[in-house]
Design a protein around this nucleic acid. Structure first.
Lengths: 245, 245
DNA sequence: GGTTTTGATTTGTGATCACACTTGCTTTGA
DNA sequence: TCAAAGCAAGTGTGATCACAAATCAAAACC
């Protein structure tokens, strides 16, 4: 009965070894596709094939088809009547629709978070703000991927504080759906000249710091509206071009 | 070159034959599981196995596992660390969380619908109200399944008018998540004596008829709050019981 | 020459198998 | 007597195969 000794031994082992995790291949495929979608690696209307992705990800078709199915149910991808799957095309209605839904739900999440964040959590997002300036000062823009990742962390760090296990997955789904749209807007942005994204984030943090839920909601809506509005204008003028041609 | 003749022939055929559809087995499994979930055929915390469901549905495991994966991503089911899957258990926090999300999103949807419904659509949901009374008068209650189905049709008939392709799938996901909870509340309801659900629906329709978005939202929130509040009380007293025992 | 038909290739779907992990029970050993 | 080891049934995951539907290109046809 050396129970205590064994227990102690296990503890030292646990301290030395790093957990190897139990992620399935399907989970990795799913995460990777999510990352690609939010990061805008796929273009709107692009068709994806199971075997093509399986080859690219160096797995068999099985994990890929299940991951695709999951992405289709959360509307991150679209199943065509041909049974092929593509990333949803951009339309004016869809842009307005996504913006409205995001304003509603992310606005609610941040309003909740504003009343629940403790000083520790506020300091954490404030620190991200600083990290941001740093990156922005170092290399003046063009590191779009890094900036997008940081932006995502910033938002979800806040949303996590809303304490709702129901709202957060919905927000993730919305980001997944708007990812491809946003990305084309961002690229157009960086060509059209820099914009002051930092300003919006600063006013969000300020509102959170003084627990002003309505101000936080307002600042957030302004923040997420910007790329959508830009994309909207771009699409409208493009459709006018098309009409003229 | 009898193109026109062939075309005409095809048209007459199309008029005589009813479309057989192209639904896959996986789609049918998914729909069936959705129906079961919303209808409350599965109990909260119940564990589901792939092979068990495949046997019950008389298919192979393949369509079932893909359908389960989809239901897990929309939080209608829950993946345990053991890799087994169960319908999510009911907790107080989850009840409040679901009610808040549903009030927010379905409230927004009905507010949008209120400004967009045409007389034809309003007449349609009004007719459902009548159908309801009819059923209710014929066999006084106890036909819970029929009533739940009618309730679902009533709500989604309205939501469809909001014109948002983004909000509606989210609402479906929320119904899927709250299905098992609601069902235990409904059963408890029908034991605890009848309640006037018709009253709420009537005031919803009245608000819609006069295009009063805020009144519609308020009436809807009152409607969906009722079973949640009931369940909440039931759970609280039960936990007190458990504490005492 | 333009349209239809045919055939080859690609793709999604469902079934089945192999393997690893979990779980519950029995057996073993102190 | 009771905890630990061992065993057996059950379960999820990934790979592979068979098949039907879709796609595309060349060939045949009027």
């Amino acid at each position: 009965m050396q129970k205590a000794a064994i227990e102690r031994n296990n503890e030292t082992l646990a301290a030395q070894l790093t957990p190897v995790g139990r992620e399935t291949v399907q989970d990795r495929v799913y995460s990777e596709l999510r990352r690609a979608l939010i990061g805008g690696l796929f273009e709107p209307s692009q068709v994806l094939t199971i075997r093509g992705l399986a080859d690219a990800l160096v797995t068999s078709t099985m994990p890929v088809r299940e991951a695709l199915g999951r992405l289709i149910t959360e509307k991150a991808l679209e199943a065509l009547p041909n049974r092929s799957v593509r990333v949803p095309p951009i339309t004016l209605e869809r842009i307005d629709d996504l913006l409205r839904a995001r304003s509603l739900i992310e606005g609610e999440a941040i309003a909740l978070a504003a009343t629940r964040m403790n000083p520790r959590q506020i300091a954490s997002v404030e620190a991200m703000l600083g990290e941001w300036d740093e990156m922005r000062a170092l290399k003046h823009k063009k590191d779009i991927d890094r900036e997008a990742t940081l932006n995502q962390s910033f938002h979800f760090e806040i949303y996590r504080c809303c304490g709702s296990a129901v709202l957060i997955p919905m927000i993730e789904s919305l980001w997944l759906q708007s990812g491809p749209c946003i990305r084309v807007a961002i690229y157009a942005f960086s060509d059209a000249g820099e914009v002051d994204t930092a300003h919006y984030h600063r006013s969000i943090v300020a509102a959170l710091a003084r627990q002003d839920a309505q101000a936080a909601r307002k600042a957030l809506v302004a923040d997420i509206s910007r790329p959508f509005a830009f994309l909207r204008d771009k699409l409208q003028s493009a459709s006018k071009e098309g009409l003229r041609a």
